[in-house]
Design a protein around this nucleic acid. Sequence first.
DNA 1: TTGTATGCAAATTATTTGCATGGGA
DNA 2: TCCCATGCAAATAATTTGCATACAA
Lengths: 166, 166
Amino acid sequence: MLYIDLFKIDYYLINVMSNIQDLDSSIIKAFRGKSYKATPQRLAISRFALCCRDHPTAKMIYSQIKKEYPTVSLATVYATLLILKEVGLLQEMNLPQSKARFDPDMQPHVHLVCLQCDSIIDWRHPLVSKVIAEVAADAKFSVAGQVLEITGLCSRCKQKINLEKK
Amino acid sequence: MLYIDLFKIDYYLINVMSNIQDLDSSIIKAFRGKSYKATPQRLAISRFALCCRDHPTAKMIYSQIKKEYPTVSLATVYATLLILKEVGLLQEMNLPQSKARFDPDMQPHVHLVCLQCDSIIDWRHPLVSKVIAEVAADAKFSVAGQVLEITGLCSRCKQKINLEKK
DNA sequence: TTGTATGCAAATTATTTGCATGGGA
DNA sequence: TCCCATGCAAATAATTTGCATACAA
């Protein structure tokens, strides 16, 4: 069983946005744009989901938010994630064993999913967008989201296995 | 709720293999190669999973096999699918809403997943393998499987929606 | 003020597991 | 013969839903 220390989860968009107020107002604007109320719980969940670089599951997000709002419910987390998808602020990844994980990076990129340690590495490759655009055009398909997932062994786990063999 | 008429599910590998005996003996060889017994239930499940082009779920496979083996259990279907993945005869797709679907096409290709009608179209693009190979090399990652899924609207559903607007 | 959002608990659904029995090799 | 595979039912786990109350606009 993988254990992720939520205190160590690091943040992403926060370094991109000039400050947390900018992030908040972007979230609020996105919510109100589709007539969703901007509640404190939704803001906290969104802030975390949009800043966390570790592709968290709903439960990881829930555990984190609980520290700030001890009475928050998992149902609210799921509902908020649904809205964030709807307003285009994050996408859902689909992995084996029915654990949905979420990714605030909306640009086409590759996920390297390690089957050994459960980590997910983001990787950019210029051809990904090109392939997607060409296929969509050929098939007359309207793209809503895309995921290129490669499963296997990350370099660290590969090394570890090699060392054990010796 | 999508309803797929299992009588209409069409077959794939059967057209590739010269006959069903070839298919059966390939399956048996793959099973015995890893010391799994080739039972009638496993053969029936494998035959169907390897020939069905509709990316069926475990339940769809189960419903189909039940006609031939009325006492077969869903647990056996899941167990057999696991073995088929292990021996490299099919791969698992991961889609939203925790429905695993299975695909006997082991070549790198694109899945166009329609959010409206739940259909999945396979599409080949020569660059897919290239991108995967390059990313894996750059990240020193050992590839076990890969999935490029594009979600959105298929051309047929798009047309239907356009007609309704008029 | 007026709905919509929340929290709770119960419901739903996919998948896995334990175990006694049956059947391939 | 000897385990491994099967079928059944129960367990697990993720996600969703119903409903009374609270709160953003």
